[in-house]
Design a binder for these strands. Structure first.
Length: 328
DNA sequence: GGTAGACCTGGACGC
DNA sequence: GCGTCCAGGTCTACC
């Protein structure tokens, strides 16, 4: 069975660090709660391959990545690069300690890394599919996008996941009617296609410049202004994409922020007033504001529903509807 | 600059 | 089983 080893930072903990953000239940990711392993189909260019990521010893042990087919050197390099972005393996324990020094509440658990996607493109599409829709709707849209437009891996019928996430080129060529009817994305159809086209175009012709967005020398404010120009991306989505780029200074404020402000932080006022107050509340955490905000929310979810690594994909969606969250 | 209403889907609820 | 209501962030038109 082909298996590759991937080194991790000294404090890396697979269940904690994968199940740190809702994307771990979005296709093509599949978290096996019993075995505590991550399944995912990776698009490696010429073909899609199913991978199972496991960690024998917690806290710093290397990852074992089993793949459904033998990979050549180029594919192994592509897989390593995708896993590094997805699991934030390039964020050192020392860098994470800066966050824990600012917010010691999460030092003992070591929480701080946030799961993201292997590509910025997938993060942007996932963010847009999470806007103006309840969480079960987001789960469905991503599942269908993979099934309809993602490359299929050669896997057994019972495999937990068979399709990769669509490539920008594939989504750019899709018809709006297909996205609407088969992927159930609703009015997001043309916006998703326009976004995909921007990832296909080179930056010199108006396409998205990923390296510029990721460059620490590019100021957060400039990145925010650039992201908010994208179709389907408003203030919430732009701030969320920023945290997925590792820029944690802004909060993606939404109805969940308002609920948290009211029910946990005891704030009063209109939704707009509470959003302002939540923002002010987390300003002391500066460059790590989002992490403080997010893990405070995440702790609340875990207090209600148990550790996140026990949340099943098919039932998790219902835990995060407004009705379920309001019922305490 | 601020605000109202449309945009879609799927779940909840009442009958 | 059907109809109605509601949640959700972005976009456009309008003031």
């Amino acid at each position: 069975m082909p298996t590759i080893k991937v080194a991790t930072p000294a404090d890396y903990d697979l269940p904690r660090d994968v199940c740190s953000y809702g994307y771990f239940v979005l296709a093509p990711n599949y978290w096996d709660t019993k075995a505590r392993v991550l399944w995912r189909v990776f698009d490696l260019g010429q073909r899609a391959v199913l991978a199972k990521v496991s960690q024998k010893s917690r806290r710093g042990g290397s990852l074992s990545v089993w793949t459904s087919e033998s990979l050549d050197k180029t594919e192994v390099a592509a897989l390593r690069a995708q896993l590094t972005r997805m699991l934030c393996l390039d964020e050192t324990a020392e860098h994470l300690a800066q966050f824990h020094a600012l917010d010691p509440r999460f030092a003992a658990s070591g929480k701080g890394r946030l799961l993201r996607s292997p590509t910025l493109f997938e993060d942007v599409i996932k963010t847009v599919t999470s806007c103006n829709v309840t969480w079960p709707g987001t789960i469905q849209m991503n599942k269908r996008l993979c099934e309809v437009l993602g490359k299929r891996a050669v896997v057994a019928k019972a495999a937990p996941q068979a399709h990769a996430f669509p490539t920008p080129a594939k989504l750019a060529r899709a018809r709006p009617a297909t996205l609407r009817a088969r992927c159930r994305v609703g009015y997001r159809d043309t916006r998703l296609i326009e976004l995909a086209r921007l990832f296909v175009l080179p930056p010199s012709r108006g396409g998205i410049d990923e390296s510029w967005l990721a460059d620490p020398a590019t100021p957060d404010e400039v990145v925010f202004k650039s992201l908010i120009e994208l179709p389907g991306v408003g203030p919430y989505a732009a701030a969320n994409i920023m945290q997925l780029l590792g820029r944690y200074s802004r909060l993606p404020l939404d109805t969940e922020s308002v609920r948290h402000g009211r029910s946990v932080l005891g704030m009063k006022g209109t939704s707009a007033q509470i959003m302002k107050r939540v923002k002010q509340h987390f300003e002391p955490f500066g460059a790590h504001a989002f992490r403080s905000y997010w893990f405070e929310l995440w702790d609340m979810y875990e207090a209600k529903h148990g550790p996140s690594h026990t949340w099943e994909r098919d039932s998790t969606g219902k835990l995060f509807t407004a009705a379920a969250l309001n019922a305490t």
